[in-house]
Design a protein around this nucleic acid. Structure first.
Lengths: 193, 193
DNA sequence: CGTCTATTTGAATGTACTCAAAAGCGGTGG
DNA sequence: CCACCGCTTTTGAGTACATTCAAATAGACG
């Protein structure tokens, strides 16, 4: 159950058996059914969440009721509401499951405990957040500089497994376009080949 | 010269005089003239940069030669190409000065040295990057859910000092719209009041 | 099956862009 | 001190990418 996560960590820092054991002892395992919320806008997000099975999405809902997906999270991904987690303010995102899923959660308190006991985990989480930051920078630039068709093709190329497991309108919501327009784009793309 | 940066750090971690002294000894001071590059796309970004005077911008240039600003950095801000800095790959962003500026730089090697000597700085940089990550998430969502006028007003509200010191077309480039369109938006906004 | 949701298609519309030109503004030098 | 130069901002007209709304079709699940 912990292999995926421990491997994930070992890609960035090295761990002794004691460190592994201590870390694992701080985790909570949780099953989430399809459509179930892991975090709901307005709640305080109390956990960093690592997906070991299934697929989730983090999204916000605007004043017109439109959903905007900030992130998909399948196996081997971290997900959460970083703003709420770090500030203890109400979450600005919803996170729910697109499939029956399983996750491992590390609470804020346990994370602080972990950092205090083994400071090297600060490094691990720094690196994880850095990678997320870099991805977001690329996304901002792509949204500004590329037309929707190209963004769709980039997405299909970069996240083929997600493309194949989530409904098309969710992809549209991630790309920042309407489901109708994504449908037309796909028709276009199909015609070209 | 170091007060601004040390205060910046002290907002997140506490430092002993020795830690401060060691940290400061790792920094390089640099003056940048207006229009001068701090980082050029294709170079490897060797430093984390903290602005103590002036204003810089980080931007990418797309295949049509259009510039897209990912970040402004005035006094008390960090700037750089995180992707290049962490991977040692060529930078995807340019960073240049919008005014004559002064910065403090921490090289990759010195940062690693710092982390090795005083691991608590891992915590500091984790927090800094986390805050950047959170801002970027908000920006992605805003770009997807709000029309340009509202994004402009949000920007004016959130970064009034930047609005007042950088040319309008640079703000347009940050917002992801053309300078012509920003001009029309401002006309609209002025008429409303 | 029947129902609910997802996807596709069509037609009209809107937000934002392009290209071109004019106007404004700031600095520099004669 | 004014004239000129370069750069920024504004304005206008035409256009394009993407949206909205409505309806038809297709798929998935109990």
């Amino acid at each position: 159950m912990y292999k995926l996560l421990l491997d994930n960590i070992r890609r960035h820092i090295t761990l002794t058996p004691e460190e592994e054991a201590f870390f694992v002892s701080l985790l909570q395992h949780r099953r989430i059914r399809k459509r179930q919320y892991l975090i709901q806008e307005g709640d305080v997000c109390k956990y960093e969440t690592f997906v070991i099975k299934g697929c989730l999405r983090a999204y916000s809902v605007d004043e017109n009721g439109q959903e905007h997906i900030i992130q998909f999270a399948e196996e081997d991904w971290w997900v959460g509401d970083m703003y709420s987690f770090t500030t203890r303010e109400p979450a600005i995102f919803n996170v729910d499951a697109l499939e029956d899923s399983e996750v491992l959660q590390l609470s804020f308190e346990n994370q602080e405990e972990l950092f205090k006991t083994y400071p090297k985990f600060e490094r691990f989480f720094r690196i994880i957040v850095q990678n997320g930051f870099i991805s977001l920078q690329r996304r901002v630039i792509a949204n500004m500089s590329k037309p929707a068709e190209e963004r769709y093709l980039d997405f299909a190329n970069r996240y083929p497994s997600i493309l194949n497991r989530v409904p098309q309108h969710q992809v549209a919501s991630y790309l920042g376009i309407t489901p109708e327009f994504l449908s037309r784009i796909r028709k276009q793309v199909a015609h070209k080949s």
